[in-house]
Simulated scan of single mutants.
Amino acid sequence: MFGMGFFEIFMIIIVAVIFLGPDKLPQAMVDLAKFFKALKKTLDDAKSSLDKELNLEELKKEALEYKSSLTQGLDELNRSSNSLFDDAPKAKPSQEIQEALNAQSLEDKDKTMQETPKSPKIQPTQNIQEISYKSKDT
């Protein structure tokens, strides 16, 4: 409430009881409530008169109408552009091209399967001074 915490409100109540006393405190609370009610009513009246002067409600309605008409226009534009592309002939590869592509991919698979590299067999030999490896081709 008004950016104040419980402790601040409690301190204001204690100060009010000390200065006003228990007999004047209830009437002071009623007067304070009336003041806030009158302030709220005044602010609401000012807001409504400002809205009337600026025709804020009418402006909101017009803005919503423009927004809806724009979205409808965009939807129609999207539909018409999609229909233009739907009428275009679809490019399909001829049967000969499709067969050539399939044959080429089969040849590539066969070549990769035949060209598997063979790893050379390595046999260790040990000398007194060092260890060396010789490859043995079979």
Rank of each mutant, 00 (worst) to 15 (best):
M29R: 02
L50D: 03
D86Y: 02
T42I: 00
S48W: 03
S49N: 04
A46C: 03
K34W: 06
E58T: 11
V30G: 09
V30P: 00
K52N: 12
E57S: 15
S68F: 14
A38Y: 07
E76Y: 08
S49V: 04
E53S: 14
Q95M: 07
F36R: 00
D31Y: 13
A88E: 03
L84G: 04
D86L: 08
N82Y: 03
D86W: 01
L56E: 03
R79M: 02
P89W: 02
E58A: 15
E57C: 05
S81L: 04
S83Y: 10
L59A: 12
E62V: 10
I97F: 14
K34V: 13
S69G: 07
A46H: 04
A46N: 02
Q98F: 12
S94I: 00
K41C: 03
S69W: 04
E65S: 15
L54G: 12
N78M: 10
L77V: 10
K52T: 12
Q98W: 03
D51R: 11
M29C: 12
K34C: 06
F35S: 06
E76T: 13
K60A: 15
E53T: 12
S80M: 08
S80D: 05
A63G: 13
L84T: 01
V30S: 09
K41Q: 10
P89F: 11
E76K: 15
K67W: 11
I97Q: 09
A33H: 05
A91T: 03
L74N: 12
R79T: 02
R79H: 06
L70M: 13
S48P: 00
D87F: 08
D75S: 15
S69Y: 07
K67R: 14
A28T: 01
Q98Y: 08
P93V: 04
Q72V: 08
S69P: 00
T71C: 03
F85H: 04
Q72N: 15
M29T: 03
Q95T: 06
L39H: 11
S81Y: 02
G73F: 10
E65K: 15
E65W: 13
L77E: 08
G73P: 00
